[in-house]
């Protein structure tokens, strides 16, 4: 009674194995290319953040990204950024930088603020080329950097074809 069952099992196992073998032999090139590209872009984002913050640590907190967790259309995603700061001459947000992990270019936008802004509360609309991480870095007047990151799922990516 157990024999047919094991036969089915081995046949299934063989088919899965064979399928996997085919996938492994044809896909790796494309996969390697894709991985290399996403790695390069993630590295580009880290480099872009480093260009802003230098060797200073970017601590999490004080800054908050508001992005929908699931986006249907990556062409215009509402983005909100709030930074917790009194915005006085002595203690204010100097700049807010926004980066993405997988867009063709890591930079999204940079905002220069000052005590005249009253609050650090910005809204805009951005493009997202893929499901990815969005990072915002706030530069304070005392030289510290604060960051927040949000993972966004995108179903229809931006900048793929002519609209």
């Amino acid at each position: 009674m157990t024999e047919p069952l094991t036969m089915v099992a081995t046949r299934r196992r063989f088919l899965i194995g064979a399928g996997g073998l085919v996938l492994m032999t044809t896909v790796p090139e494309a996969r390697a290319q894709f991985l290399a590209q996403s790695e390069a872009r993630a590295a580009a984002m880290q480099a872009a953040i480093k260009m802003i913050a230098g060797d200073a640590p970017t601590k999490s907190g004080r800054i908050k990204i508001e992005l929908p967790p699931l986006v249907e259309n990556g062409n215009a995603v509402p983005l909100g950024i709030k930074v917790d700061s009194p915005m006085t001459d002595a203690d204010h947000v100097k700049a807010i930088h926004v980066f993405t992990e997988k867009n063709p270019q890591p930079n999204v936008a940079a905002f220069q603020l000052g005590p005249r802004a009253g609050t650090a509360n910005i809204q805009t609309r951005m493009r997202l080329a893929d499901t990815q991480l969005v990072v915002a870095v706030a530069e304070m007047s005392d030289g510290t950097f604060w960051r927040d990151e949000v993972e966004v799922v995108v179903t229809m990516a931006a900048c793929l074809e002519e609209s």
Partner: peptide, 25 residues
């Protein structure tokens, strides 16, 4: 007096929209 400045990259959507605050002096 400059109160706000934004630098845009290609990742900003078409018809760029920006919202911010300032103090009425």
């Amino acid at each position: 007096t400059e109160v706000f400045r934004a630098e845009f990259f290609p990742a900003v959507s078409a018809n760029p929209f920006v919202s911010f605050t300032t103090v009425a002096t």
